[in-house]
Computed example of a mutant assay.
Amino acid sequence: MRIPWWSTLGIDVVCVLAFAAAGRSSHAEENTPGALVGTAWPFLVGLAVGWAVLAVVARRRDAGGQGPTTWARPVAIGVPLVVITWSVAMVLRATTDQGLSGAFPAVALGVLAALLVGWRCVAVLVSGAARPRSAGRGHGTPAPGG
Results as ranks from 00 to 15, higher is better:
L92E: 01
P68R: 14
L54G: 07
V82N: 04
E30F: 12
T69M: 09
S87G: 15
S25D: 06
V49D: 02
W86C: 00
V57M: 07
R60C: 13
R24F: 12
G34K: 09
E29S: 14
H27K: 10
V45F: 06
G64Q: 00
V56N: 03
G46F: 05
W71V: 02
P42H: 10
G34D: 08
E29A: 15
T32E: 15
G38F: 13
Q66M: 08
A89D: 10
V88P: 09
A35F: 07
W41Y: 14
V91K: 03
E29H: 15
V91E: 02
V53D: 07
A35T: 14
W51R: 13
G78L: 09
I77F: 12
M90V: 01
G78P: 11
R61N: 04
A72I: 13
E29T: 11
V49S: 03
A52W: 08
R24W: 09
I77R: 04
Q66R: 15
A55H: 07
E29M: 15
F43P: 04
V91R: 05
G67Q: 00
V56G: 09
G50W: 12
T70F: 15
D62E: 15
R59K: 10
A89Q: 11
V49F: 11
L92T: 00
G78I: 13
W51L: 09
V75L: 15
P68K: 12
G34C: 06
G67N: 00
D62S: 12
A58L: 08
A55V: 02
G67W: 01
P80G: 07
F43K: 03
A35V: 14
A63Y: 00
W51T: 04
A58W: 05
R61D: 01
E30S: 15
P42Y: 10
I84D: 01
R24Y: 11
S25N: 04
P33C: 10
V88C: 07
W71K: 04
P74Q: 10
